[in-house]
Design a protein around this nucleic acid. Structure first.
Lengths: 174, 174
DNA sequence: CGTTCCATGTAAAACGTTACATGATTCT
DNA sequence: AGAATCATGTAACGTTTTACATGGAACG
């Protein structure tokens, strides 16, 4: 609910637009599907948090915008303490279960993960370069911080993969 | 399902024991509740992956153990590529939505997060010290790697909090 | 003229947590 | 005796994904 209201603070838009924002820029740490977005937009209207207008020529769409009340509940949600993340990491699960006989399997998974993390990191770093040029110090948008988080957390996971592979190689080779 | 089978590879045990392992040692990257565990154990038996025996004196419990077939499906699951983690991070969501007017609110959240991360990190580092003493190089259990991951990823998030706070403080103070 | 993208929605299924019910045993 | 822990389970509830249905507009 608040994720959708949060996106509406960026400006009036349709359910389709909202979905695109989730998949294009928030996907690394949040997602909502159509199955949630459309019913929630209706709910937001019924609670008085948003208004809907049909607009667009010739292609028409339903554009939602926040009411003052919507902005108020958004702000009070922002100030609440965050819920703990519930995080499910299949790779870690497999690593924690594997016995010595499965070392080779785990090493395969780690190598694959390494490749994917490196690719993601390259993309994130490029984005960072682009944005650094645009926003000279001080005048940066807050969401730029989430890009930094993407970089730092991906680097950490990559370091871990390397470290783990080294340890496992040492074990297999002995 | 495979999380439960995975735990059973460590030895025969009851649903209650399994739950304890989730909360005590796997909780940082996985969890299952009773509402999932008990039905899944039944399912595992019906599929031939596990067997159940009633045991224990005087307190009796239902102890589940893997069949050969169960061990086989576990191994083939291990070798499959991991599913991407779907990760929902409310703190990042809030940071990405906040405008300049909300800087103070975000800084409050970041400070709180910092405290919690530092506490967690202290605990993880103590555990690491204890275990380093027990397992001299080479002879380490694989799940020790997950502890390393906990440390590295928590450090990264903590670094990010510090960095973000510095940037925001610079912005507010100007 | 066919494919891709825009656009909205719903129903069913899957997934997961929480709360409750129940009762025995062990610890202080 | 009372509290904590062991132990098993289910029903209700809430959340999330997936698959489907539908159709117009833009692009090549």
């Amino acid at each position: 609910m608040f994720a959708i209201i949060g996106i509406l603070t960026r400006g009036p838009q349709s359910g389709y637009d909202i979905r695109k924002q989730f998949t294009e820029s928030l996907s690394y740490f949040w997602s909502e599907s159509y199955g949630q977005i459309y019913p929630m937009l209706k709910e937001a209207v019924s609670k008085g948090y948003a208004e809907m207008r049909v607009t667009g020529h010739p292609r028409q769409k339903k554009v939602y915008s926040l009411t003052d009340e919507g902005r108020a509940v958004f702000r009070s949600w922002l100030a609440e303490p965050v819920n703990p993340i519930n995080y499910r990491d299949e790779l870690l699960l497999k690593v924690s279960f594997a016995g010595m006989e499965e070392d080779e399997i785990i090493m395969g998974l780690l190598r694959q993960e390494k490749v994917e993390l490196q690719q993601r990191l390259d993309i994130l770093r490029l984005q960072e370069e682009d944005l650094k040029a645009v926003y000279e110090t001080r005048e940066f948008p807050t969401w730029l911080l989430t890009l930094r988080y993407g970089i730092l957390s991906t680097e950490a996971r990559l370091s871990w993969c390397r470290e783990a592979l080294q340890l496992l190689e040492g074990r297999v080779g002995s």
